[in-house]
Amino acid sequence: MSALGVNEDRAAILPHVRIRPVTGLLDLDLSSLWHYRELIYILVWRDVTVRYKQTLLGVAWAMFQPIATMLIFTAVFSVMGKIPSDGFPYPVFLYAGLLPWFYVSQALSRGGSSLVGEAPLISKVYFPRLILPLAATIAPLVDLVLAFVAFLGLMAWFDVLPTWRILLLPLFAGLAALITLSGGLWISALYVKYRDVGHILPMFIQLGMFVSPILYPVSKVPESWRAFYALNPVVSVVEGFRWALIPGFQVDFSMFLPSLGIVFVVLIGGLIYFRSMERTFADVI
């Protein structure tokens, strides 16, 4: 049966997909992300482009927001509130903390609503759903870079010269991205099922600023609270940013361990939860 042989050859060349009910937990299928890498890129590009379309100042907004916040917070918390900053100029100290915080809060809120916000896409076209929170986590990195450029200006103003440590900044930015991705996975998947998330998330993010050392130094946190305090992974990111950006800034790196462990657990758990929920997204959303 030569005809059959030919058919089998042809079938072997064509990509074969078997659609069947999947129920397993540990089917992460991360290779499909690589296959769809162009879509990740284009979604990130879209998020960035759309954000500054039809605005007068365009990307300057990414710098304006942290600068304005820095000025007002400095006035309120440093000039009026006399909050210390471990002896560094408060504007520099504050801005070095606002940098990662703006990224984390933005990436978390965009990542968290990435699925519900793209409901029409999810019900009309197939792609690994993981791409949505992933792209939403990557896109605000562009704003982070722009806000960082503004920070360089601030450092020049206060005559603060960066050291070699600044080269390690991408490492801490990467940690911030991992934290928001792991949070984004959980939040976005839960949001599909429970719309309560839409109410909780903004409040959660707002409070997050106060349980992270943005406005005040870690040294102001009572010793007995520190172990508990360090469970918040954002603490590590903020401390890491300050260590990398402000010469002479002291960091207790032992605080990093518990939070790294938590990020790891939340990330793996988030991946598993997301993948198991993914199958019903189109039905529930």
């Binding site: 064509l14 997909v17 078997r18 659609i19 009910p21």
Partner: peptide, 20 residues
């Protein structure tokens, strides 16, 4: 939607040969 892999079936299979 099942054949496009948007939602998954409760039972049964679909084999697809080629890019969809």
């Amino acid at each position: 939607k099942i054949l496009s892999r948007i939602t998954q079936p409760t039972r049964g299979t679909a084999d697809i040969y080629g890019r969809v």
